[in-house]
């Protein structure tokens, strides 16, 4: 069975159909890309998948269970985590606190234990600290654990956002333009990192990206969205040579 299966998903904003009849299937451990020109509706799809927007029609199923109508935090608890196109870190908090917040749903002590400072509180905090440090190390941010998130350079903020999403221990990771604002060197490293975390954590990843070198480099399967509709699905090679994709990106005349 597919891990994620999206069937005929549509949404309209005040009469305008932003996404219509969107279909997508991801098998476990897939690494897929969602591309398309600006305004095609890619982020809107992410927002529906994570419960920020309620679709007007269609269904989203994770492991055969519908996610439609759940709140974003409930969808996260089901195992879906995401990053944002315009970075949304907890910017006035430290790097490690950003991760600890994402670990919150897996915390080992309750409200009472926290207020009364029972022994469970200290062991729970210690575990959260250690797990967060491990993740930071994977993302090469461990030396900056005490800095405020807003003081990190842009590329590191993007990495921190992915690390934070990983801290919620997802099965499905949605990355919204992870390479935006990165230089070629950083993008290259990011590609390696994305491949590595997929293997290491047995993840399924769907990413939105404008940087074609990244998309073509890491994704095994690509979905192309234009004006809210899927116009092509295929391997990087198939997509590269697809007439409709080229038209969508470059306009009619170019083809």
């Amino acid at each position: 069975m597919a891990l994620l299966s999206v069937n005929d998903l549509s949404i309209s904003f005040g009469g305008l159909k932003a996404v219509s009849d969107f279909n997508l299937k991801l098998q476990k451990n897939d690494l897929a890309g969602l591309i398309g020109p600006n305004g095609a509706g890619k982020t809107t799809v992410f927002n529906m998948l994570t419960g920020v927007y309620l679709p007007s029609a269609g269904d989203i199923q994770l492991d055969g269970k519908s996610l439609v109508g759940l709140k974003p935090y409930q969808i996260n608890h089901r195992g879906v985590a995401r990053t944002f196109q315009n970075i949304r870190l907890f910017s006035d908090l430290t790097v490690i606190d950003n991760l600890k917040i994402a670990y919150h749903s897996h915390a080992k002590y309750g409200l009472f234990g926290a207020i009364c400072r029972l022994p469970g509180f200290y062991s729970g905090e210690k575990e959260m600290h250690e797990k967060s440090m491990e993740l930071l190390k994977i993302f090469k941010l461990d030396h900056k654990y005490g800095e405020l998130a807003k003081n990190l350079p842009y590329g590191e903020q993007r990495r921190l956002e992915i690390a934070r999403a990983m801290a919620t221990q997802p099965r499905l990771l949605l990355l919204d333009e992870p390479a935006a604002g990165m230089n070629p060197q950083e993008t290259h490293e990011l590609m390696g990192l994305i491949r590595w975390i997929r293997e290491e954590f047995d993840l399924t990843i769907l990413l939105i990206e404008h940087d074609m070198s990244l998309v073509m480099g890491v994704c095994e399967n690509i979905f192309v969205l234009d004006y809210g509709q899927i116009i092509a699905v295929g391997t990087p090679d198939e997509i590269r040579n697809n007439r409709r994709v080229i038209e969508a990106y470059l306009g009619e005349e170019a083809s």
């Binding site: 996260n76 608890h77 870190l89 907890f90 917040i101 926290a114 729970g124």
Partner: peptide, 27 residues
């Protein structure tokens, strides 16, 4: 004690960025 615990951090994350907090599993 509340503020300096995971519950407090969840509380503070809402101040920092409510949409991100919700996406990270905070009710």
């Amino acid at each position: 004690n509340f503020v300096n615990s995971t519950h407090g951090r969840a509380t503070i994350s809402i101040r920092e960025n409510e949409i991100a907090a919700e996406a990270m599993g905070i009710n």
